[in-house]
Nucleic acid binder design. Sequence first.
DNA 1: GCCAACGTTGGC
DNA 2: GCCAACGTTGGC
Length: 151
Amino acid sequence: MKSEPSEVSIDDLASRKSVPWFGVRNYQARNFMRDQMQVGDQAFFYHSSCAEPGIAGICEVCAPAHPDSTQFDPDSPYFDAKSSAGNPRWVCVDVRFVSKTRLIPLTELRQHGELAGMQLLQRGNRLSITPVSSAEWQYITERLMRGKDRG
DNA sequence: GCCAACGTTGGC
DNA sequence: GCCAACGTTGGC
């Protein structure tokens, strides 16, 4: 799950009980949250659009998909005039902090052939939420996150 | 700021 | 339904 750290960083997540994954305005990413993600599922927390993009930690889904309140807020950059309370277009799950890991840069992820199939790493990928296979999850958590914690 | 890639929109 | 134009994402 990608987040711009200037909006919500792994430290921001750690300081809060939970955070709604607001602002997703892409149907595929929305559908992942609505149809695939369940309470208890874990995800990599990825810092995007920043100096050092990469995986910064792990989070866990703690509430199933519900309407994203920012779509109804005219002052929000995520406001959607075509959505309505009766028929909300955008939903989001809530996530909570699990752990902060060393920052695993995108460039490092690309160096591992075992991860070449990750949707995150595919050319032109723009989805803010992408699936991770169990093999990929295992490889990253057991082999890449085992290094010294550099904060 | 550039630009590749891809999603959305809207005229037809 | 096609497709050109336009907008957005996000790494670099």
